[in-house]
Amino acid sequence: MLSKRYACVEPERCVACGTCINVCPKAAAELFHGCFARVDAARCVGCGLCARACPADCIALREREVTA
């Protein structure tokens, strides 16, 4: 079951440091072409570890849209 939240990266603020990748317990974060991080919402459990660890403060938790 998916959590109600997921992590979302603001790519223009990301410094591609890899911190989010190192702390993600579900390996949902990855570097995209070595330029910025992105999070696979399907694997993200919404724990917020990446958002708290991000030195660029470019990761926020968003509410998932409810689909029937």
Rank of each mutant, 00 (worst) to 15 (best):
Y6L: 04
Y6Q: 13
A7Q: 03
A7T: 07
A7N: 06
C8M: 11
V9M: 00
V9H: 00
V9K: 02
V9I: 08
E10Q: 13
E10Y: 12
P11M: 02
P11Q: 00
P11L: 02
E12P: 03
E12Q: 13
E12V: 04
E12A: 14
E12S: 14
R13H: 08
R13S: 14
R13Q: 07
C14G: 03
C14P: 03
C14N: 01
V15D: 09
V15R: 15
V15F: 14
A16N: 04
C17W: 02
G18T: 04
G18K: 05
T19N: 09
C20H: 05
C20D: 00
I21E: 13
I21P: 02
I21A: 04
V23G: 15
C24L: 02
C24T: 11
P25N: 11
P25E: 13
P25R: 14
P25H: 12
A28W: 01
A28M: 01
A28T: 07
A28V: 09
A28C: 10
A29D: 04
A29W: 04
A29T: 00
A29Q: 03
E30T: 11
E30V: 10
L31S: 07
L31R: 01
L31C: 04
F32T: 08
H33G: 07
H33D: 09
G34V: 05
G34K: 03
C35M: 13
F36K: 09
A37S: 06
A37I: 00
A37H: 06
R38I: 00
R38N: 06
R38M: 04
V39F: 06
D40H: 08
D40V: 01
D40N: 06
A41W: 03
A41D: 04
A41E: 08
A42S: 14
A42C: 06
A42M: 06
R43S: 07
R43K: 15
R43N: 09
C44Q: 05
C44N: 05
V45T: 10
V45K: 11
G46E: 08
G46C: 12
G48C: 07
G48T: 01
L49Q: 15
C50L: 05
C50Y: 00
C50A: 05
C50F: 00
A51D: 03
A51Y: 01
A51T: 06
R52L: 15
R52M: 14
A53K: 12
A53L: 08
A53C: 03
A53I: 01
C54M: 07
C54R: 02
P55Q: 06
P55M: 01
P55R: 09
A56H: 05
D57H: 15
D57E: 15
D57V: 09
C58N: 06
C58G: 04
C58M: 05
C58L: 11
I59C: 07
I59E: 03
I59M: 08
A60H: 13
L61C: 12
R62S: 07
E63I: 01
E63D: 15
E63R: 08
R64F: 02
R64D: 06
R64G: 07
E65G: 12
E65S: 13
E65R: 08
E65V: 12
V66T: 15
V66C: 11
V66N: 12
